[in-house]
């Protein structure tokens, strides 16, 4: 059974907004690592079937591209390789390791308040649609709530963002210390206008 229906594809393609090319490179590196050049080619073919002539080799990291392409890239991999949400989450988790965007544009601070201050700006530097706000920050309980608004494409992509956010957060924490990001509310399921991510750390 396909991961995404034709209707959902059309809906995604209609969504406005752009994302930096670096996002595609993170996804592409993961696919190449797991499935090699043939796997990448199959994904590109799938995207082409969905009406987008997409070639990773032509993507420049700092250039803006339709955010829908990024969504389709993730969904194409999930569809072609029958990956579960776990693999998609891992794909997101790998993103910061490869992404020049994270390294160049996201300042990592061990101070959680400073780190929290960076998050909205980071989103704005890399996406032209949606926004992330720090809904709450409890230093005593070591819990931070993030809300991502106006950027819901597909439930799978929530997993991608979950993984991406967790790795990014871990970059700012000592190795092996506890740091977790989980989606605690989803616009697709919970009748809320945002995706809520709860960050916990030790």
């Amino acid at each position: 059974m396909p991961v995404v229906s034709e209707q959902e594809i059309k809906k995604i393609l209609r969504k406005k907004g752009k994302v930096r090319g670096a996002a595609f490179q993170s996804i592409g590196d993961f696919i190449l690592k797991r499935k090699g050049p043939d796997g990448l080619a199959r994904c590109e073919d799938q995207i082409k079937k969905w009406g987008v002539d997409f070639h990773l080799s032509e993507i420049a990291p700092l250039v803006w591209y339709p955010i829908a392409w990024g969504a389709l890239f993730v969904l194409a991999a999930q569809d072609v390789f029958a990956w579960s949400e776990t693999e998609i989450r891992e794909m997101g988790g790998d993103g910061p390791k490869i992404s020049a965007i994270v390294k160049l544009m996201f300042k990592l601070f061990p101070n959680v308040e400073q780190l929290a201050g960076q998050i909205p700006g980071f989103w704005r530097k890399n996406y032209t649609v949606g926004e992330i706000e720090v809904a709450s920050l409890d230093k005593a309980k070591k819990v931070m709530i993030l809300h991502l608004r106006d950027c819901a494409f597909h439930p799978s992509l929530c997993r991608y963002i979950e993984g991406f956010a967790e790795t990014t957060f871990r970059f700012s924490r000592p190795k092996n210390s506890f740091a977790q990001v989980k989606e605690t509310r989803c616009s697709f399921n919970d009748n809320v206008p945002y995706e809520e991510y709860t960050v916990r750390w030790e």
Partner: peptide, 28 residues
């Protein structure tokens, strides 16, 4: 990162320590 988590490594760093590109990203 400020807590010494490796973010990015150069080609000669990878070669010196025998790792693949980006293999050490996220490690302390």
């Amino acid at each position: 990162s400020p807590v010494f988590i490796i973010l990015e490594t150069g080609k000669w760093f990878d070669a010196l320590f025998g790792y693949e590109k980006n293999e050490l990203a996220g490690e302390s």
